[in-house]
Computed example of a mutant assay.
Amino acid sequence: MIDAIPWTSLGWAMLCAAQALCLLVLVTRLAPGRSRRPPVPPRLAPRDDTTVSVVVATLNEAHRIGPCLEGLIQQPAPLLEVLVVDSRSRDGTPELVETYAQRDPRIRLITDEPLPAGWVGKVWALETGLHAARGAWMLGIDADTVPAAGLVGGVIDAAEAGQFDVVSFAPRFRGQTAAERLVQPAMLVTLVYRTGAAGAEQQPDRVLANGQCFLVRRSLLEQHGGYAVARASFSDDVTLARHLAAKGARVGFLDGSHIIEVRAYATLREMWREWGRSFDLKDSASRIQGWLDVALVWLVQALPFPLLVLLGAFFWSGASWPTDRQPQWLFIALMVVNSLAFLLRVSMLWALRGSYRHRGVTYWMSWLSDAAAAWRLTMSMARTPRSWRGRRYASVSAPA
């Protein structure tokens, strides 16, 4: 039977079958997103039944930490303290933080000890903050975020409503150029395809987290060794969240577009370089899982549009498909599978629209960058980072 089928047909059939299988996996993974929780609202009213310690890790962040601290000093109780853990910045960051500390005594500047071997700088700063914290909850906030008024109360309300021990929040992106909006949404979609929708229940090995706004019970964190489990991880947020989920903690990932905004990278080049080093999540999963996810991204995100163009060219040109010996059912099957995959991809733009303050034409055309995003994911999976946010690492072996 196999001998009767041209090998080119067998290759196309295998591709079609692999795409159909990945599409089924993807639909199953995304289906819970239909009932996901709405964006978390801010809470402006104070509450005094719990306390929160915010930790902000800094290394030469003077050019962007100001809006973050402005947002934090507007937070009422349960915010107890803001611990800015600085790693000996040389751009005036400590001096700037001190000016905010004079305005709000809840802000404290801490200088961490020299980075130990085997630790990533940000994770070491978070660990330092944990040892100094007094709040019942730890809330990690990145220096490049802009907290809305009522963020702290809002995240506590969300954690209690969902009975979460650990919960992080997807931000709203702001200030992106048209070029960034053409590429960054395609990279973001690869994350959604690999983990599922924000606000939906996830299995421990598929949990997604965002270290830009990451809330965890301090007692639980201390019980399981603090941030040390993620000490060598460039995707420390996901590594820690999945570790705690595997230990039985209830972990959530919610839509925080109403409570926090972020302008993480100044240019498309910086975003491509810096985010591209960590968005593979290879530090947080097995290598097999990581490469299977790469294959899924290629098959149902990157390839459908080019294949539809190719198949359409054959059809409209009147050429045979692609030779007289190829079965027509295979042409039809490929058209159906790739059309469904492309329609699902385009629908993701509507689902993610609330995550962008400004969208414009390039956002809605970002599916044109799917192949580039898949290529960046592949390169990132194949390489071990040696630098991150101004630090260089001789060798960091991240635990899976």
Rank of each mutant, 00 (worst) to 15 (best):
V56R: 06
L343N: 01
V167R: 04
R206E: 14
V189T: 08
S35C: 11
R34G: 15
V189A: 08
A4E: 11
D49I: 01
H224A: 02
V346M: 11
L368Y: 03
R386M: 03
A101W: 01
R357K: 09
A382H: 11
P185R: 03
R231N: 05
E61K: 14
Q203K: 14
L343I: 14
R263Y: 04
R29T: 15
D280F: 02
Q163W: 00
C22V: 01
T190P: 01
R376K: 04
A371H: 02
S233F: 02
L83G: 11
M271Q: 15
D165Y: 10
V52K: 08
T177P: 02
V207R: 14
N210V: 01
S87Q: 15
P41S: 14
P147K: 05
T93S: 05
G150Q: 08
Q326W: 00
T58L: 06
D255C: 07
R386W: 01
T50W: 00
G196E: 13
A394G: 10
L151I: 03
I5L: 15
R392M: 10
E201P: 02
R277L: 15
L311C: 03
A17L: 15
R273G: 00
L59I: 07
T99I: 03
P76Q: 06
T8H: 15
A285R: 14
D142S: 07
A351N: 09
L344K: 01
L349F: 03
R353A: 09
I141Y: 03
W298M: 09
S380H: 06
Y356Q: 01
L221V: 00
L240Y: 03
L292A: 12
P41A: 14
V167T: 12
L83N: 10
W12T: 05
S219M: 09
D237C: 05
D205K: 02
V336R: 08
T58A: 09
R242D: 12
M348N: 12
V216M: 11
R277V: 09
M271V: 01
L80N: 06
I141W: 04
M187N: 08
D205C: 05
I107W: 08
G71F: 05
S355E: 12
V300I: 14
G71D: 06
W12I: 11
G290D: 15
T145N: 10
H224D: 07
L151Q: 04
R218I: 12
A266I: 03
H63D: 15
S366Y: 06
G11Y: 03
V207P: 10
T267Q: 07
L299P: 14
T93K: 01
D144N: 10
G175A: 12
W350P: 00
W367Q: 04
A143K: 07
L281Y: 15
R43G: 03
P306F: 07
A341D: 00
E270S: 13
L109E: 10
D293A: 06
A245E: 12
L377C: 05
L221C: 00
